[in-house]
């Protein structure tokens, strides 16, 4: 465990909490992609399936439970809460699950470190996490005017990924024999997806303007 990794995990948690609190406080989920949230839930469930038999550390276990719990709450709010569900932007959140899930499933069957069910599910979760933000980015693009909290949510998520890359660089430099190609390449692709958003987020912040994405 290094400081970059810890910062990454905290930022990840913070991003989810920002989103959850926004929904809870405003009773609105306008601008939030349910597809992305459900994909993240699928990512967490397939990756943290080992929670019950593979104990690594209390730190990891707590984060796993919290990630699954908070993301489930977001999905619950968006699908079931009587007021929140009415604010869901269904007409714009049209990204097809299958476009992301199917390629990730095929890829995880073809490229994995070991051919067994849990390893393949874990690999699937790594691939799926890399692209799960896409429905959210498409929704932001479509609705143009991004409210502050939604913008901060995506920014914090991107920052979390950036810190994970720093963590890998640090580990590569300090841990002999450390390598994780599958995770690195997926992680680089995932972080790359945020670059465009980052550019506009920083521009808006510099000019202290509201974040607006170009068409």
């Amino acid at each position: 465990m290094n400081l970059f990794r810890f910062a990454g995990d905290i930022l990840h948690l913070l991003s989810i909490l920002v989103l959850l609190l926004k929904i809870h406080a405003t009773k609105s989920c306008a601008g939030i992609s349910l597809k992305t949230q459900e994909l993240y839930l699928a990512v967490f469930i397939t990756r943290y399936l080992d929670l019950f038999w593979n104990f690594h550390s209390l730190y990891n276990s707590v984060f796993k439970v919290v990630y699954i719990g908070t993301t489930s709450m977001i999905v619950w709010y968006m699908r079931r809460h009587r007021n929140v569900k009415l604010t869901y932007d269904r007409d714009h959140d049209t990204f097809r699950y299958l476009f992301l899930v199917a390629p990730c499933a095929v890829l995880s069957l073809l490229i994995n470190a070991r051919y067994n069910l849990f390893e393949i599910l874990w690999t699937f979760s790594i691939y799926l996490e890399a692209v799960a933000i896409l429905p959210q980015l498409v929704l932001l693009q479509r609705t143009k005017n991004v409210d502050n909290l939604t913008g901060n949510y995506v920014f914090l998520l991107g920052l979390y990924r950036a810190f994970y890359i720093l963590n890998w660089v640090y580990r590569f430099a300090t841990e002999p024999g450390y390598s994780a190609w599958l995770v690195w390449i997926s992680g680089l692709i995932q972080t790359g997806l945020y670059l465009d958003f980052f550019y506009y987020y920083v521009q808006a912040w510099k000019q202290s303007k509201k974040l607006q994405l170009p068409s």
Binding site: R5, D9, H12, D50, N54, H56, S57, N60, F63, K64, Y67, A113, R114, W122, Y164, N167, G177, Y178, S179, A180, W181, L182, V183
Partner: peptide
Amino acid sequence: RKELEAKDEL
């Protein structure tokens, strides 16, 4: 191979 057991990250 370290990659096989490298599930120490979240």
